[in-house]
Nucleic acid binder design. Structure first.
Lengths: 212, 212
DNA sequence: TAGATTGTTAATCGATTAACAATC
DNA sequence: TAGATTGTTAATCGATTAACAATC
């Protein structure tokens, strides 16, 4: 039914709106204008209105936006009103850190399985989930119709693992390995390249020291 | 001396170029044209040339780019030819995961200190660094002229901690807390908001299921 | 030299901002 | 109603792509 495509620039801003609206909600704020939100978030009011209007107008002239309503609508757009099952592949510190984010559970991400290739870890528990041998991953993902795989394994293993996951019917990969995955278009990939992020930081330190 | 400002869009692409050039280097590739690199990286050759020319032409007409030279030049631009000292604040799984990235060491990021507020962790070792009480952070950062602080603590503590760090003369904060920090302009902040990233993934799963 | 490929200018595309009519 | 503030169109800005002259 192909609605007009929303740019990833807009999508990328939604979680931030969501975060601020959650804060306002907690503070008991009922309504907010694009101008007020603009002051808090340091983006233009114009951009805020344009962004929301991509999804068809959540405000009311002369009033502004109802915080609760807007919050709920954004959560629907982001799809975090539904549950998403998730497995973690690679149970090093990073895998454990992610498994431990109770926030994710609150957002509907249900931690269903954990896999590793280190036999010493088999049977150990991460939260209420048992670490299983990586060989059992394929069956598990298929049987439980897992939607999201979190890849926290070394880059050498990430590419073949991504292929396996695709074959098992995974819908999305949250990739922490320092490599770009090559998967079909219908598989969603979100990369978190920590070393890229640190290099940007390094650049900006340098830039400041040399230029300004 | 204010060279003309390079857009963050360009900077954001440099680490990825660097990654691919490193791979080519390892494979023993000596030269590469923007067109060849374009095929591998799935970006336009035009963008590649424009990006590099922001820094003043690393190639040669009729030849292309020398892989080793380009790799080195990008590493200089990113400032990873120099060493940067770094402390980790918050030694949960995430802090430990980051400390453990041997890659960072290779890129010149030197892990100098780790701090936590949990007394049970004081004195425990992360790699060759001892976990210290958070109260000792300020002295340590000042004395050792630490440049980068990695914030892997809960968001409630992140904002006051950022202020303290600024007072201690930190140059940059790598922020993993789910909150935007408000620091002076001369302090570089690079945010890694994992929950934002996961929400984008969730949106894209939804989008694909509903639209295409 | 001829062919290849950059560096760079010009054209296009998309995203952001400004402005204002619509409307609560 | 009058004032406020959205929704939306138009104007601007910046980033990407295309084209080609310069040059190795």
């Amino acid at each position: 039914m192909a609605d007009k495509e929303i740019s990833q620039a807009v999508i990328g801003r939604l979680p931030r709106y969501f975060r601020y609206l959650g804060d306002l909600k907690e503070k008991g704020v009922e309504r907010i204008s694009s101008q007020e939100l603009s002051d808090i978030m340091k983006v233009t009011a114009s951009q805020i209105r344009q962004d929301f209007n991509n999804f068809g107008g959540f405000g009311q002239q002369g009033y502004g936006y109802n915080v609760n309503y807007l919050y709920d609508e954004i959560s629907k757009i982001l799809g975090i009103d539904k549950q998403h099952s998730l497995v973690i592949i690679g149970t090093g510190h990073l895998g454990k850190a992610i498994a431990g984010y109770t926030n994710f559970t609150r957002r509907g991400f249900v931690f269903k399985g954990a896999f590793d290739c280190n036999p010493e870890l088999y049977g150990t528990m991460i939260r209420d989930v048992e670490v299983r041998p990586i060989e059992e991953m394929e069956d598990f993902v298929k049987k439980n119709k897992i939607e999201i795989a979190v890849l926290t394994i070394p880059k050498e293993q990430a590419v073949p693992m991504a292929h396996k996951l695709v074959e098992c019917g995974i819908k999305a990969i949250w990739n922490f390995a320092h490599v770009d995955l090559d998967v079909p278009n219908n598989i969603q990939v979100e990369n978190v390249h920590l070393s890229d992020s640190l290099m940007k930081l390094s650049y900006n330190i340098n830039r400041y020291e040399n230029n300004d």
